[in-house]
């Protein structure tokens, strides 16, 4: 069992990192989700995987031997919920970014970091990407 989990962990981490290295921002977001799934597996494996018996037993009944530890299961549930929220956010963000910037190529996304046109001096930011001055309604 533990070897199957280890193999799954390896596959999800490797494929997730591979996707993250892509220039396509949508693939990066997906890759992060896959890496997150792999890490959740690791968290789950940190409590034993030995048994499928329930960890919580009714009062009076004997303690189950080789039952898996319920704490990592609770932890992994928390991590899944948080990861879910982050995946939601990253998808919404990537969608908006691709729509507004008109490209999904990470190398062309230079709105926050303009490309220097000069070897020595840093580029001046495009005024369209700066806060509006003077602030609305003021001279």
């Amino acid at each position: 069992m533990i070897w199957a989990v280890a193999a799954a962990l390896w596959v999800s981490l490797a494929s997730g990192v591979y996707l993250c290295l892509s220039r396509d921002v949508f693939r990066v977001a997906l890759g992060l989700a896959v890496v997150g799934a792999g890490v959740n597996l690791a968290l789950l494996a940190s409590g034993r995987l030995g048994s499928v018996q329930p960890a919580v037993v009714p009062k009076g009944q004997p303690f189950l031997e080789l039952a898996s530890n319920p704490l990592p299961q609770a932890l992994v549930l928390t991590a899944i919920v948080i990861g879910f929220a982050l995946v939601c956010f990253s998808l919404a963000l990537v969608l908006g970014l691709i729509r507004d910037a008109g490209t999904d190529d990470a190398l062309e996304l230079r709105a926050a970091e303009p490309v220097p046109g000069n070897d020595i001096k840093p580029p001046a930011t495009d005024p369209a990407h700066e806060p509006e001055w003077p602030p609305e309604g003021r001279a």
């Binding site: 992060l32 890496v35 963000l93 507004d100 709105a111 926050a112």
Partner: peptide, 20 residues
């Protein structure tokens, strides 16, 4: 703004990797 979305994406990608 576009530059803010761009910046959030870079922040997200590297920080999320850190949290993982």
């Amino acid at each position: 703004r576009v530059d803010q979305l761009d910046a959030s994406f870079k922040y997200l990608a590297l920080n999320l990797l850190g949290t993982l």
